[in-house]
């Protein structure tokens, strides 16, 4: 029975990993292509959650989880065009500072618009409750999130590996100079990457709003875990981030099973161990511009 319980935690951890993945994948893509550590990524997640709660009031849950990420993705275009673009070739500390500043400005803006008190949000009645498959208990709503994550993941993978767009992006990660020599400007590609990245973060926010507290600092809370995932996964690697997200979810679940109080610390211990053995992260590639 003990083994069954543990297995249940592992499966639940995998589902939770999917939840982290939505945030971490965009963060990793933006860093890999643009060389910018986007500390404002959590802010877009929070915006996604707030917009979706607001839209749900008027149009219902379905439209909200579609419109909110799209709206934030459009904001992402402005973000790339007017802010990020100036920092691709600058000292990394500058982009750190500017995105950190943007994260704070967004958090305060949320406070001004929606107030400091958390917003109330619920799961639509259809998705309430759990399903029991064999010995395992799944929240119906989390299965929905899992399906959405899987679809998003497939979409991004196809985009990166099966389209000419993806070929340029992947080449841009490794050898931006060669891409430039071939006469291809990376900037429009970067706009799309940022749009996708922050849109996914917002989608995460929209889907998590009904199950976590929606408050101004929610972005700052999620960004730490997302970073851990990106660092463990390694830069420039799609599958690295996927595996890392699932690992983080599983390790946290197993730790909580045995030593509940150490649950949150466990993911940092995992990061420490992975970096000891593989300083570039699990599947991190050697990227010349970052060496």
């Amino acid at each position: 029975m003990q083994f069954g319980f543990l297995l249940e935690q592992v499966v639940n951890g995998l589902v939770l990993g999917g939840y982290y993945l939505l945030i971490a994948l965009g963060l990793s893509l933006i860093f890999s292509v643009g060389g910018v550590v986007n500390l404002a990524h959590g802010a877009f997640y929070a915006l996604g959650a707030y917009l979706s709660v607001e839209i749900t009031r008027y149009l219902g849950f379905g439209p909200a989880v579609v419109i909110s990420p799209l709206a934030v993705a459009l904001l992402g275009i402005l973000f790339e065009r007017f802010i990020l673009r100036r920092f691709y070739n600058a000292d990394p500390i500058l982009s750190l500072l500017v995105t950190f500043g943007l994260a704070m400005v967004t958090e305060q803006a949320i406070r001004i618009v929606w107030g400091a008190a958390p917003l109330s949000a619920s799961i639509p009645p259809v998705f309430r409750g759990s399903v029991i498959l064999g010995d395992f208990l799944f929240s119906r709503y989390r299965l929905l999130i899992l399906a959405v994550v899987a679809a998003a993941l497939l979409g991004i993978w196809l985009l990166l590996h099966k389209t000419s767009f993806g070929r340029v992006v992947r080449a841009g990660i490794q050898r931006p100079d060669m891409v430039a020599a071939l006469g291809i400007r990376l900037q429009p590609y970067m706009t799309v990457i940022v749009m996708l990245g922050v849109g996914m973060a917002a989608m995460g926010g929209a889907f998590f709003a009904p199950i976590t507290i929606v408050h101004p600092a929610m972005g700052a809370e999620i960004i730490t875990v997302a970073f851990v995932v990106v660092v463990i996964g390694g830069l420039g690697s799609f599958w690295g981030v996927v595996i890392a997200a699932l690992m983080v979810g599983v390790v946290r679940g197993i730790t909580i099973h045995f030593v509940p109080a150490a649950g949150e610390a466990s993911i940092y211990v995992l990061m420490f161990l992975v970096l000891l053995v593989r300083p570039r992260g699990l599947l991190g590639e050697r990227i010349e511009k970052f060496e």
Partner: peptide, 20 residues
């Protein structure tokens, strides 16, 4: 009785333990 860190946002592993 489970101790829960103040920054925990996901309770699913705890809920599974309760169910067990």
């Amino acid at each position: 009785d489970e101790l829960v860190a103040t920054d925990v946002t996901d309770f699913s592993p705890y809920l599974l333990k309760i169910r067990q």
